[in-house]
Measured scan of single mutants.
Amino acid sequence: YIGSKISLISKAEIRYEGILYTIDTENSTVALAKVRSFGTEDRPTDRPIPPRDEVFEYIIFRGSDIKDLTVCE
């Protein structure tokens, strides 16, 4: 799965898409590269977040912050 395009939804209901870079089982983290944030879209939340235009080089997510993770390709 390393190198695959991943769609990830955080506990804050924010969806991110990026390339799976590393999975650290010891620290329970997932790192994505070339990440875009799509905001909360239409998911119900107390704090709606708009999508962002910039592409983040890397984002490291803690396993406890991840609600859903899907391989896109």
Results as ranks from 00 to 15, higher is better:
25 T>P: 13
57 E>R: 08
3 G>P: 01
32 L>W: 00
11 K>V: 10
8 L>K: 03
50 P>H: 15
22 T>I: 05
20 L>M: 14
7 S>G: 09
4 S>D: 14
20 L>I: 06
3 G>L: 04
27 N>W: 13
10 S>K: 01
31 A>G: 12
9 I>P: 00
50 P>A: 10
22 T>E: 12
8 L>Y: 01
12 A>W: 11
68 D>M: 14
8 L>E: 12
58 Y>H: 11
33 A>N: 10
22 T>W: 11
29 T>F: 05
70 T>D: 09
57 E>W: 01
42 D>E: 12
28 S>P: 05
34 K>R: 09
72 C>G: 11
45 T>A: 13
39 G>Q: 00
20 L>H: 00
69 L>G: 03
44 P>F: 11
64 S>A: 13
33 A>T: 14
49 I>T: 14
12 A>V: 11
8 L>H: 01
6 I>H: 06
9 I>R: 03
22 T>H: 06
43 R>I: 00
42 D>R: 08
18 G>N: 02
9 I>N: 02
25 T>Q: 15
26 E>N: 07
8 L>Q: 00
27 N>H: 06
50 P>I: 00
17 E>K: 00
60 I>H: 13
39 G>S: 05
71 V>A: 12
4 S>I: 03
62 R>Q: 15
41 E>Y: 06
52 R>P: 06
51 P>D: 04
50 P>R: 09
65 D>T: 04
70 T>M: 09
9 I>A: 02
47 R>K: 11
43 R>V: 01
32 L>Q: 00
22 T>Q: 13
65 D>Q: 13
53 D>S: 10
44 P>Q: 10
6 I>M: 12
10 S>H: 03
52 R>H: 08
14 I>Y: 04
16 Y>N: 06
47 R>N: 04
19 I>F: 12
28 S>I: 15
67 K>S: 05
37 S>M: 14
50 P>E: 15
48 P>Q: 14
44 P>A: 14
40 T>H: 02
42 D>S: 07
52 R>N: 13
21 Y>M: 14
6 I>Y: 11
47 R>W: 10
6 I>A: 09
67 K>M: 04
45 T>H: 10
22 T>K: 10
35 V>H: 03
7 S>V: 12
68 D>V: 08
11 K>G: 06
55 V>G: 06
28 S>K: 02
59 I>R: 11
21 Y>R: 14
5 K>F: 04
3 G>R: 02
57 E>P: 10
57 E>D: 12
72 C>L: 13
27 N>M: 09
41 E>N: 03
69 L>M: 09
23 I>W: 15
50 P>K: 06
57 E>G: 05
57 E>A: 08
13 E>K: 03
6 I>V: 13
52 R>W: 08
54 E>M: 05
72 C>W: 13
57 E>S: 12
68 D>N: 09
4 S>Y: 12
43 R>P: 05
14 I>W: 02
66 I>E: 04
70 T>N: 10
70 T>H: 05
10 S>Y: 05
18 G>C: 04
17 E>P: 03
56 F>P: 05
55 V>Q: 11
26 E>G: 12
53 D>E: 14
15 R>Y: 03
49 I>G: 01
9 I>T: 07
37 S>A: 14
31 A>P: 01
5 K>R: 12
69 L>R: 01
49 I>A: 07
15 R>I: 08
51 P>H: 04
13 E>Y: 04
13 E>R: 06
15 R>V: 03
10 S>T: 13
8 L>R: 01
71 V>P: 15
70 T>C: 06
47 R>D: 08
66 I>R: 00
12 A>P: 01
6 I>Q: 02
5 K>P: 11
61 F>Q: 04
16 Y>V: 03
23 I>Y: 14
26 E>T: 15
6 I>D: 06
66 I>K: 03
72 C>M: 07
9 I>K: 02
60 I>Y: 06
9 I>L: 08
52 R>Q: 14
22 T>Y: 13
30 V>R: 07
51 P>K: 15
5 K>C: 06
28 S>Y: 13
16 Y>C: 01
24 D>S: 11
73 E>Y: 13
47 R>P: 07
73 E>H: 13
34 K>A: 08
54 E>T: 11
38 F>V: 01
54 E>P: 01
60 I>M: 15
73 E>V: 13
67 K>R: 09
48 P>G: 06
8 L>I: 04
17 E>T: 10
35 V>R: 03
72 C>P: 06
24 D>G: 07
35 V>Q: 02
8 L>G: 05
46 D>C: 13
10 S>G: 04
70 T>P: 03
26 E>V: 09
43 R>C: 05
23 I>R: 12
36 R>F: 08
51 P>T: 03
6 I>R: 02
47 R>V: 10
67 K>Y: 02
1 Y>N: 04
37 S>H: 04
28 S>V: 06
47 R>A: 12
16 Y>F: 12
34 K>G: 11
10 S>F: 00
50 P>Y: 09
16 Y>H: 03
